[in-house]
Amino acid sequence: MSSSPVTALIALAPGVHYLPGAVNSFVVVGRETDALLIDTGLDDSHARKLLRAVAEAGFTPSGILNTHSHADHHGGNSFILKRFPELKVFAPPMEDAIITHPILEPLTLFGARPPRELQNKFLLAPPSPARLAPEPGLCRIGGADIELIEVAGHASLMYAVRVGEVLYAADALFGPGALSKHPLTFCADSGLQKQSAVKLSELEGIKTVLPGHGDPSDDLAGLVAANLASYERTTDAVLNAVNRGEASIDELLARVCDALGVTMNNAGAVLLNRAVISAHLTELLEDGRVEMKVLGNKLIFGAQA
């Protein structure tokens, strides 16, 4: 028999909890029963579970912090705001604009007004009025004292959240299961993605790290090493694809997917994985390992001469 999904908050430390899900929600208790909700999940279903869990624990939502603007991390905002309209939503720079105007996510991926197939909850969350979160460092949001750590790369800008000995890494780090299921880990900047993972590995005094996708771990160094190995594997796969002969981004995407055993069955998956290839190509271009040119009215990438 399969176990029932967890619908209650799980304590990571005094005043620090999370709700497991396809995306984890991080909850930090501040003044008395105030609860800062960090990442609200993909949709109304997750948000409903989050509110129920918070209420059953005796807490009251006091604010929302979205670590970045991907739909699976702020899709629950709208449902929560309908019940708690006084809550303020905070997000990093640039990310706040996308949360406020979610069409920017599929528009950026597609390069123009996206067709209906790309206007789904995985790429287009309901809008919510986000404002700028405080700059990285110690701060108070919704009555909760937290430390924001800049970890750009997976998104244009993203914050990890530290509370004492607990680190919510957001999508700067993924659990082993997520890395295995999605070998082409999404990123806007693969170079920064690697730097951010290394940055987190240098934190001292962390006893528990919670990735945005996956279970808590007491091995920060091991989790960082697994993520860096996965990111480098993608870079190597892109470089190997280029070394097989000059090709366009879409041709390189097909080669990389074949090499990594990735099967794409919908337009959204193609665009997301295409962006990953583009990010790693930019890194390789800047490292001088790949060259880019226009040939036959196509943008072509080849090995550096």
Rank of each mutant, 00 (worst) to 15 (best):
P129R: 09
V151H: 04
G261Q: 09
V238D: 10
E232F: 05
Y159C: 01
V29E: 15
N120V: 12
P61A: 00
D171G: 04
A125P: 01
S190W: 01
I149A: 03
G222Q: 10
G191K: 03
I98H: 02
L81A: 03
L132K: 13
C257Q: 09
A133R: 02
V27S: 08
A169M: 06
E204W: 12
A275E: 12
A55K: 13
F79I: 03
L157C: 04
G177C: 06
E286H: 03
G191C: 05
D250R: 13
F26R: 02
H68F: 06
V294R: 14
G288F: 10
N243K: 14
S62R: 01
G245Q: 09
G137N: 11
G153F: 08
P5T: 04
E32S: 06
A112N: 11
E165W: 02
G137M: 11
G30K: 02
N24E: 13
K82C: 08
L107F: 11
S4E: 14
A247V: 12
G30N: 05
P92F: 13
S230M: 08
S156V: 15
L118C: 02
V209H: 03
N273L: 02
A275S: 12
E286T: 04
V198P: 00
N297T: 06
N243R: 15
V238R: 05
D39A: 13
S201R: 13
V163H: 01
L167V: 04
V16M: 01
A254L: 14
N273H: 13
N227H: 14
I206Y: 02
P85G: 08
F84C: 10
R131G: 15
A53Q: 09
E246T: 04
R255T: 15
S278D: 15
G63S: 06
A144W: 01
A112M: 11
V290P: 02
S25T: 09
I249E: 15
H17N: 01
V242M: 14
F301K: 01
L51P: 00
P176H: 07
M264L: 15
L295D: 11
A269H: 08
A267Y: 07
E135Q: 14
S78L: 11
Q304R: 15
H213S: 09
E291Y: 08
E86R: 10
T60I: 06
P114F: 11
P134V: 08
A91V: 02
E135N: 05
L252Y: 09
G30D: 10
D287S: 14
N77Y: 04
A221K: 13
P92R: 08
V242F: 14
I98D: 01
V198Q: 08
R289T: 07
V276I: 14
K181E: 14
E147D: 04
S156H: 10
V224I: 09
K298C: 02
R116C: 03
G137Q: 07
R162M: 05
A133W: 11
F122N: 11
L179V: 11
G164P: 03
L124Q: 00
H213A: 12
A155N: 05
N240Q: 15
N24K: 04
I10D: 02
F110A: 04
A112G: 04
R244D: 14
G30H: 07
H68S: 08
E232Y: 07
G288W: 07
P216V: 10
Y18W: 12
R113H: 13
R140Q: 13
A237D: 06
